[in-house]
């Protein structure tokens, strides 16, 4: 099932388009606005799109009916999809997390902080999984992306002082949202 879900992800042109433009934007922003991993604050939007697309693309052309008739155990199928998404996202997140610091090192000679790179990679991967879960709940790409961008760029800055560290928030909310999404996915009519 994981192989089937991987096959779906990589045969979708939108997946590659999103990843390529996210990396390109991150590299560009590194030169334009800042050094290090600061541009990730913006380029993480690309990972939101990737996550939402992974689950919402099921609802294009009635593909969800094919998916659920060939893999009718829904929770397992969704878990396979999230696993496949993590497999695709992890290297892409690493590339984006590395690109900023590498450029900075090349230009300014400051060393790459490995721990920092690892944290950004994990952050982007978890953010993608959260986005996929929101996509499952909303079943609409544009709505999903809008809600997540609204949360990240409008709501979170407002309540920031009441929240723990970004990373801690994400580590807690990812499993919660994945479980909520799986329960909704199992219960409802396709």
């Amino acid at each position: 099932m994981i192989r089937a879900e991987l096959s779906k992800l990589v045969s979708l042109p939108a997946t590659w388009l999103t990843l390529a433009s996210t990396l390109a934007a991150n590299v560009l922003l590194t030169f334009v606005i800042a050094a290090g991993d600061a541009p990730v604050a913006y380029s993480r939007a690309g990972f939101i799109v990737l996550g939402v697309l992974a689950t919402c693309s099921e609802y294009t052309g009635g593909q969800i009916r094919t998916t659920l008739t060939v893999m009718p155990r829904r929770v397992r199928q969704l878990a396979a999809k999230h696993t496949a998404l993590a497999v695709v996202t992890l290297p892409a997140a690493l590339a984006v997390a590395l690109s900023g610091p590498l450029i900075t090192t090349a230009v300014l000679g400051t060393p790459v902080g490995l721990w920092q790179v690892a944290e950004v990679t994990a952050y982007l991967t978890l953010l993608t999984l959260v986005s996929a879960a929101v996509g499952v709940l909303l079943r609409h790409t544009l709505a999903g992306v809008a809600v997540l961008l609204g949360c990240l760029f409008v709501a979170v800055p407002f309540v920031h002082e009441y929240l723990p560290d970004d990373m801690v928030t994400l580590v807690v909310s990812t499993p919660v949202l994945l479980v909520v999404a799986a329960l909704a996915y199992r219960r409802r009519d396709a």
């Binding site: 096959s7 779906k8 045969s11 052309g61 593909q63």
Partner: peptide, 15 residues
């Protein structure tokens, strides 16, 4: 029952 941006063969492959 297939996504419009996939090819027919890619659709059958994942199934």
């Amino acid at each position: 029952g297939a996504h419009r941006s996939r090819t027919g063969r890619a659709h059958l492959r994942w199934v």
